[in-house]
């Protein structure tokens, strides 16, 4: 579903990513952890077609970037720690705008369905700027899912949420990985990241330094390996 070969990204003299090889299967929930500055967000932005690699190849849902970027974007939904919404538009207007940009059919029904899923139906006519951080993040999920993407990229989605809102978001995100949708998430919370995924990658100094499946390794081993490889 997502493949990267010898992927590198350079910002001035700094190499943010160094020759990364990645193969993520359809339906897999992959968590990427790593210390600050490891290159997690850079990697996710390249996979989201928002950034160009300095060298290497990326293929998303069979579309080679950058030539196939327009087609690849139809398969991608992005949820970031920023809600990526318009504060002066209502919840419904935000979803309608993005639905129109993606040519979503039966838009009214889709908006109703998504607002129901994220429990914001009663606030549909309120401006997004009046929402709490947790509510904004739930609306952002609805935005990211508007075109029913087969790939969901989550860039530290729990940042800035209180424990209750984080638990609610986790519940929503777990529901999205129904085996059909490929999910790639960057996160700082090792335990939460491990609990949600089927595969965990550790990124450090721009390289993937650890790759494990949760079925094969327990969380304690993962934690100690994380400390070892990121020292």
């Amino acid at each position: 579903m997502i493949t990267a070969k010898s992927l590198s990204k350079q910002f001035g003299p700094l190499w943010a990513l160094r020759s990364i090889d990645l193969d993520i299967r359809p339906g897999e929930f992959t968590t990427i952890v790593g210390p600050n500055g490891a290159g997690k967000t850079t990697l996710l932005r390249i996979l989201a077609t928002l950034s160009r690699p300095t060298s290497g190849q990326v293929s998303i849902a069979g579309h080679l970037l950058p030539r196939g970027a327009d087609d690849a974007r139809r398969h991608i939904g992005l949820l970031s720690h920023l809600p990526l919404l318009y504060g002066d538009l209502t919840a419904e207007e935000n979803l309608r705008f993005f639905g129109q940009m993606y040519d979503v059919p039966n838009l009214k029904a889709r908006i109703d369905d998504l607002l129901e899923q994220v429990d914001l139906s009663e606030r549909r006519h309120d401006r997004a700027r009046t929402f709490s951080r947790g509510m904004q993040q739930r609306l952002a999920i609805a935005r990211a899912l508007m075109h029913n993407p087969s790939i969901l990229l989550l860039d530290e989605p729990f940042t800035g949420l209180d424990p209750h809102a984080s638990d609610r978001l986790e519940e929503l995100l777990r529901g999205l990985n129904d085996g059909q949708r490929t999910v790639v998430m960057t996160i700082h919370d090792l335990d939460r990241g491990w609990a949600m995924c089927q595969r965990a990658l550790v990124l450090a100094r721009g390289k993937i330094v650890y790759d494990a499946r949760t079925a094969d390794v327990d969380v304690a081993t993962f934690r100690s390996e994380f400390r070892r490889v990121t020292q």
Binding site: A48, T49, L50, R73, L78, L82, L84, L85, F98, M101
Partner: peptide, 14 residues
Amino acid sequence: DRGSFDALLLAPVD
């Protein structure tokens, strides 16, 4: 600043 430009760039349009 509010990140909505990224959401705009993610849309499958030229």
